[in-house]
Design a protein around this nucleic acid. Structure first.
Lengths: 204, 204
DNA sequence: GGGGTTATATACTCTTTAGTACAATACAGA
DNA sequence: TCTGTATTGTACTAAAGAGTATATAACCCC
């Protein structure tokens, strides 16, 4: 009985890589949304069959939640790293330009799974819709806190409304997600990002 | 054989109002999306049963298309009327503030059915997704043409990029749709709309 | 090499899906 | 009132949905 529950090396070994399979599942949910993705879609994309999916990931809902968890922590994720830029303007710029580039990137589905994964959906998907909404709101709050820090550091005017500015930036990012999902090019979206940055308050 | 094909008054008369039923169907699609809306959801909301739905509207896809047609032409629609404002700035302002107010209005589902009706969806919904994308692009083009007119009228600087400006405004409107769908209040969205208007080019 | 354990593949369950057949019903015109 | 036509309600179909039972296969440890 080992104290550390390291991946039990007993029994038949799993014949697929969970990370890879999760990535494939993410692509399906990203493209089709939670309601639009059937288990057949998922298993055939993941290259496994249903019992393997269920034993490895629980069920459709848990698979979705693990897929978006993976999505948020991918190395090419743009939101969290942007918060670490030195100035508020650079945070906004990195975030918007990052969104424009990432969401139109042809190496994965267009748009943002946090937006289009379950926007309008059946009752069966209401749980995941709730989670997505909360995650988006959490991002908006994280950005607000970063902007409040910038105000405290005199990097932004003291009368800046951090909540409103954060909401504005997140609104544009969400809009970019829709445009990307509709086929907008990277150049078009970067242009939109720069226009949105034009109204960013000047530091003093 | 009358020349005008007025509603044939032969046979058993329809027991429900098609307009009202269509409005109910719209609400279902608006809330649940095309994939998430089942025929049971639709018929129970519309207060009719399946054969009536099929004989009156064709099938699920045609019902959806008629529902969004109705949506676009409703009196409380905000996009088309905004294009008729006298100045480009007023067009943008009317459109953004209208979007903010309309999409958070509690008298119908939040957000925009043209955005959330079929954003990421199954193959069965790919036809309606295509239509929605085209309609959104058409709106963007209509706005671009209105802005080009403004440039010709010296209402906007001659070096204004009408396509980019139109895309920017539509991006914000789409973002507002997401925020509204996530529960943002009218006040919050109007604030976002005003921030977006801050970067609108000044007339000369 | 055998025993315990876990994954795999096939084949199944039950529910819900979109869509329809058909008999009964309600109206207009003759 | 009779006839033709179109809608209605009930009951149905065939396919697809999510999820599972079971037998077999592959590994580690003893």
């Amino acid at each position: 009985m080992s104290a550390v529950s390291c991946t039990a090396a007993v029994g038949r070994p799993r014949a697929f890589d969970m990370q890879t399979a999760l990535e494939k599942a993410l692509d399906v949910f990203w493209t089709k949304g939670y309601d639009g993705a059937s288990l057949s879609d998922l298993t055939s994309a993941m290259g496994i069959n249903k019992p393997s999916l269920y034993s490895a990931f629980g069920n459709k809902e848990q698979l979705f939640l693990k897929a978006i968890e993976f999505y948020e922590n991918r190395p090419c994720s743009f939101f969290k790293p942007a918060l670490e830029q030195p100035t508020a303007y650079q945070v906004a710029e990195t975030m918007l330009i990052g969104a424009a580039k990432n969401m139109s990137d042809a190496s994965h589905p267009q748009g943002c799974v946090m937006v289009q994964g379950a926007l309008a959906c059946s009752e069966a998907a209401s749980g995941v819709k709730e989670v997505l909404t909360q995650r988006r709101q959490k991002s908006e709050e994280d950005l607000r806190e970063r902007l409040e820090l910038a105000i405290a550091q005199k990097d932004l005017p003291s009368d800046t409304d951090a909540a409103a500015l954060s909401r504005y930036l997140c609104t544009v990012i969400n809009g970019i997600a829709i445009q990307a999902s509709s086929g907008a090019t990277e150049a078009q979206l970067v242009e939109v990002a720069n226009m949105a940055l034009a109204s960013f308050p000047k530091g003093e």
